[in-house]
Design a protein around this nucleic acid. Structure first.
Length: 466
RNA sequence: GGAGAGGUGGCCGAGCGGCUGAAGGCGGCGGUUUGCUAAACCGUUAUACUUAUUUCGGUAGGUAUCGGGGGUUCGAAUCCCCCCCUCUCCGCCA
């Protein structure tokens, strides 16, 4: 959520930002409604203030008279009753007027909130302008140098055969040949875009996840977390996935069964990690919070019908190691963390000798909550193309404002202003999608797949699949 | 699933129709004292929205907030209704 005050002061900035992102939202109307509401609120508060004053003046008298009333009879009683009536008259009249204004406010509120939630965070000035993914800009490319695993290195500018001396297979073919996955039975169980991993396939899946998870904890000091993957609507709204991404989430309709609220399956561990400290005021000294989780992710893939239907690329359920950083409200710090979080992933990919590139996403590809986003794409020989495996976002206070996550300057419950935190997130590793580059790049001429050395401890020492 | 008890400021905890934005304690901050540390004492210490003013750091005012939402009342932390959450006991259970 953006700051409504900032919007009032500089509507053009947000209008341009929305335009650059290709998001249509009626900012003009939002400002009008906000202005209306504030007028009404001011009036109401004025009345209320007056009422409070009257009440304070008349209150003790009323109390006294009511006490006298108990022992009074006849004419004296009538006298007191009359006085009471008079005393109550003025504040009672105000009450009606106040309630009327309150009703008006309550009419305006949902509309304002709906619109406000839709206003995207404007992209940073240095983000290239573009319509969609075709406007993204490659900023870096890394190819593995020669090594024992890849004697000639791997150059994504050349064909697979030129690199490795034989014609490679795609991951679907490899999975089938090595008995690592079973798509038919997956579909039988759970419908399209479902799969079963088996044997070394499942083991490799777990190995990359564990490797990546431990890597963030042991090498970079992230705090390991397990967080809910089935959450309340407030958490989805707070983390910025709703309302815009509502169609992407599986919806568990508990209210239909008599429950008090519905639940939603999360499409990323980010939701749980960011939700942990919602409605909290953290101490400045606690920051930055560096969290990593590994969790199952559920995505409806609505609107992706017909896209990437085969294989492990676009599936409804997968597992992901996700990192988030919650830091102080500082653009410089936010930018520095972004670089670091990307750096961790680069290191990780390099350790597994997977060619990758960094893409600076353009304005049209950012989504409502990001000021800046870098996608990391791994080389997928079967597609003869890079495919997105990671996405690193910088959100400033957009998410923390929605989540009401603040910190107090000056350390342990000390004095100081409260400020919304800044947040960032990045994939560490998502599997089984990541098995695509892993299997395809490391396949051998004999049809087997070499397991990168760093993964072997997680595979019971296995060096080769098949 | 059944039966009970509760949710009050950063934390603990009192209040159970007006004198309460809220006692007391802890913690934090400032000060006094003091070889140092500690202790003692004094002061101070919620958040959001909003208005006016401003030498843009403030200053003065208003409204709201005692889990959330509604209601009763001239007036609600306090009474009533709905919801959410926590705890205890029983049942079921990976």
């Amino acid at each position: 959520m953006i700051d409504l005050k900032a919007l009032r002061e500089n509507p053009a900035r947000f209008a341009l930002g929305a335009k650059a992102k290709g998001v249509s939202v009626d900012i003009e109307r939002l400002l009008q409604l906000d202005e209306q509401k504030r007028q009404i609120t001011m009036e109401r508060e004025k009345l209320r203030s007056e009422q409070n004053r009257l009440s304070k003046d008349a209150g003790p008298q009323i109390g006294k008279l009511q006490g006298q009333l108990k022992g009074a009879h006849g004419e004296a009683r009538e006298q007191i009753e009359k006085q009471l009536e008079e005393l109550k008259l003025a504040p009672a009249r105000m009450k009606a007027a106040i309630q009327e204004l309150e009703a008006k406010e309550q009419q305006l509120e949902p509309a304002i909130r709906d619109l406000l939630l839709q206003v995207p965070l404007p992209p940073d000035g240095d983000v290239p302008v573009g319509q969609g993914s075709e406007g993204n800009v490659e900023v870096k490319r890394w190819n593995p140098p020669p090594s024992s695993a890849l004697p000639h290195g791997f150059d994504t500018g050349k064909s697979f055969e030129q690199n490795k001396g034989f014609a490679g297979k795609g991951h679907i073919e490899l999975l089938a040949a090595l008995g690592l996955a079973d798509f038919e039975r997956g579909v039988k169980l759970a419908g399209s875009r479902s799969y079963v991993l088996r044997g070394a396939g499942m083991r490799l899946h777990q190995a990359v996840l564990q490797y990546a998870f431990n890597y963030m904890i042991d090498k970079h000091g992230f705090t390991p977390m397990s967080v809910p993957t089935i959450v309340r609507e407030e958490t989805m709204v707070g983390t910025g996935f709703f309302p815009a991404g509502r169609e992407q989430a599986y919806h568990v309709e508990e209210t239909k069964r008599g429950g008090g609220y519905d639940l939603f399956l999360t499409g990323t561990g980010e939701v749980g990690l960011m939700g942990v400290h919602s409605d909290e005021i953290l101490d400045e000294a606690q920051l930055p919070l560096k969290y990593v989780t590994v969790s199952t992710c559920y995505r409806r893939e609505a609107g992706a019908a017909g896209k990437d239907t085969a294989g492990l690329y676009r599936i409804h359920q997968f597992d992901k190691v996700e990192q988030v950083v919650i830091c102080k409200a500082s653009e410089a710090e936010s930018r520095a963390w972004h670089k670091q979080m990307i750096g961790y992933v680069e290191e990780l990919l390099q350790s597994m000798e997977i060619p990758y590139r960094l893409l600076q996403c353009c304005t049209g590809d950012l989504g409502v909550k990001n000021a800046d986003m870098i996608d990391i794409e791994s080389w997928m020989p079967g597609r003869n193309a890079y495919g997105e495996t990671h996405s690193a976002s910088r959100l400033y206070d957009f998410q923390c404002r929605r989540l009401n996550m603040r910190y107090r300057a000056g350390g342990d419950a000390g004095k100081g202003e409260t400020t919304f935190c800044h947040s960032l997130n990045n994939t560490v590793l998502a599997s089984p999608r990541f098995l695509i580059p892993l299997l395809e790049v490391h396949q051998q001429a004999d049809g087997s797949v070499r397991v990168p050395e760093v993964l072997r401890p997680y595979m019971g020492g296995v060096a080769r699949i098949g």
